[in-house]
Amino acid sequence: MNMTADRAVICKTLIERAKTDRDIVVLCSDSRGSASMSAFAESFPEQFIEVGIAEQNLVGIAAGLAKCGKKPFVCSPACFLSARSYEQIKIDCAYSGTNVKLVGISGGVSYGALGMSHHSLSDIAAISAIPGIKIYLPSDRFETEFLTNFLLEDTAPAYIRIGRNPVPDIYSAGYKFEKDKAVKLKSGSDIAIIVCGETVKPAYDAANLLEREGISAAVLDMYCLKPLDEKSLIETASGVKAVVTVEEHSPYGGLGSMVSAVLSKSCPKKVLSLSLPDSPVISGSSAEIFRYYGLDAEGIKASIIRLLEEL
């Protein structure tokens, strides 16, 4: 099975595009290694800006570059980028409408055992509350490549959260993604699982496990959290008994909240939100943390079976 880190895909795609686009600029905050951007820095040193460990300045500089026609990609750990630079994201990017792409690397619990200072589990809640900025969580190398190319054409500010670890393929080469349209990975009639980022794979695996037990689960990859693809969500939810969201985020203000808000208004269903807890997160690798909180395939499967029994 192929395993590729999304950060490596962003770097490769930007290198390819920068060959013919001198306006692409990558900015890092002493994070070029962890962002896998060293190859870009070496290939296009005149289009790479090192800002040092100064995230507020990092985002402000990117906004200034964008005002002058550049296409800045800011690559910095999601935990710092989404919190330390929050006001710069709000005022200099979103309110000012500057074409800044914020790539939150090592998102969620990627840095698991480094502790909660390094987790980004409130980034979706915080950034989605700012008007004028888009949010994306791709799930594999193909979706990440599509998204990077799309973001180079789109001029709105956006926050993209990716994980640190190599992830398995979900799609295949040549898959035709559509911009701001969720991908229905699997159809189903009992339950709909709505996911994004690194929870797509375990949810998809859970759906296959459930199928063996006679439970039909749809899986919707909501890589575009903002603007949320409400149409696909309602379509998917309308044909099932209940909806489950799975996310690498706090229980507040993330995918579960967004899905509940849409469905309660337009397609009332029971919604079970699986997430990380509103309490100190246990330390360990991403996989260990996912398993502990029931966000791996077996955990998702067990939660869905319980949910269906309760209905």
Binding site: A63, G64, L65, K67, C68, K70, Q88, D92
Partner: peptide
């Protein structure tokens, strides 16, 4: 000043 630094770099 940060935004100005970005503009000066772009120039």
């Amino acid at each position: 000043l940060s935004v100005a630094v970005g503009m000066a770099l772009a120039a």
